[in-house]
């Protein structure tokens, strides 16, 4: 079995992004500690379009607020870069955000320190331009430092990539007798996410009478969407592979038999193989990733892959393969008899 160097290239880009954000934090802290005595109290922290200050924070809370904001951005950018296995665009964007935020934070400190009172502090388009430039430079430095993350992603997404196929096991043969009809169906889901979705729904239901429907609706919609992505029924039958949501006839995702090239069962890792959980798509692959473990992997006639993680995936893949083969034989027989 081939051991791919993916873990190294997969971690490198997120580490670069995290380092960029740490640098931004360090730059802000240095500026703050040096100019601390010159800062007014309260500090101007929000500026209108024309550059005048219109929002203020006490000096005591100021560093924590800025660091908190920087850390949230750091977590978001690093997480996104990691989840996309070091996508170049996101690695660059992450570094750019770090540069931009760091430059703005330093500019706020410097401009506050130069003013007598917070009212007089200005942060104009010039400072913003400098910040954008710093962000662009950070992105320019970050993308090459992040490595060939995108290449790794491409290789990963292409179904022809060798390392992945090493894990795919050919499904056991499923012999369909003449005139036999068969269906395989199974519920699939993720209990923690369903509990989360259910609690969102409940919170929305409680909030609606208390705080008006506008407050509750968002929560309830979120709960329904979460439940819908994680409570599915997978069916393999004469129509093909169907994934129904919430046990309802629709919405559904269906792969007709004539689009099935090959069906296999494979161990699946949502974060690694599809960039996260839920109903997702990456170049060359889409599907429902609800948990780690066995999944039905369908290679479509278009060359891309459709995946759904479900228990007893081996049986499902075997039946789907047999049904697709029978469909192909029928089509071939149909065309020859029509031609002759």
């Amino acid at each position: 079995m081939t051991v791919s160097p993916r873990p190294v290239s997969g971690l490198r880009a997120p580490l670069v992004v995290a380092a960029a954000h740490l640098l931004a934090c360090a730059a802000f802290l240095t500026a703050f500690l040096i100019r601390r005595d010159g800062l007014p109290d309260p500090v101007a922290t929000h500026f209108s379009g024309s550059g005048g200050a219109d929002g203020f924070t006490t000096l005591g809370a100021f560093p924590y607020e800025v660091l908190g904001m920087l850390l949230v951005a750091a977590l978001l950018c690093t997480g996104l870069t990691y989840a996309t296995r070091g996508h170049r665009l996101l690695a660059g964007l992450g570094c750019a955000v770090a540069g931009l935020l760091g430059a703005v934070a330093v500019a706020v400190v410097v401009n506050n320190a130069g003013a007598q009172a917070a009212d007089g502090v200005r942060l104009g388009p010039g400072a913003l331009g400098v910040a954008v430039a710093v962000g662009a430079v950070a992105a320019g430095l970050g993308v090459p430092a992040g490595g060939r993350g995108h290449a790794a992603l491409r290789a990963k997404a292409a179904p022809q990539a060798e390392p992945d196929d090493a894990f795919a096991e050919p499904a056991p043969r499923f012999v369909l007798r003449e005139g036999e009809s068969a269906v395989w169906t199974r519920g699939a889901g993720s209990r923690p996410v369903l509990v989360g979705g259910g609690s969102l729904l409940a919170a929305g239901a409680v909030l609606t009478p208390l705080a008006g429907w506008a407050a509750g609706l968002g929560l309830m919609v979120g709960g329904v969407v979460l439940c819908a992505c994680f409570a599915v029924r997978v069916t393999v039958d004469r129509h093909g592979l169907t994934v129904n949501v919430l046990g309802l006839p629709r919405p559904r995702v269906r792969i007709p038999l004539d689009r099935v090239e090959e069906a296999t069962c494979r161990d699946f890792e949502p974060l690694r193989d599809l960039g996260g959980w839920g109903y997702r798509a990456v170049p060359g692959r889409s599907g429902f990733a609800l948990r780690s473990g066995p999944a039905v992997v369908v290679r479509l006639t278009t060359g891309s892959e459709f995946v759904v993680t479900v228990d007893d995936a081996a049986t499902a893949a075997a039946l789907l393969g047999a049904l697709a083969e029978r469909e192909r034989e029928r089509t071939v027989a149909g065309t020859t008899s029509a031609g002759g």
């Binding site: 009809s181 269906v183 169906t185 199974r186 519920g187 069916t235 039958d237 004469r238 129509h239 006839p249």
Partner: peptide, 21 residues
Amino acid sequence: ATVRPGERLPAARALADSLGV
């Protein structure tokens, strides 16, 4: 135990459609 106690079976209509009966 492929189908667990308390679990819902596929709707009769859906199963009939799948099997062509």
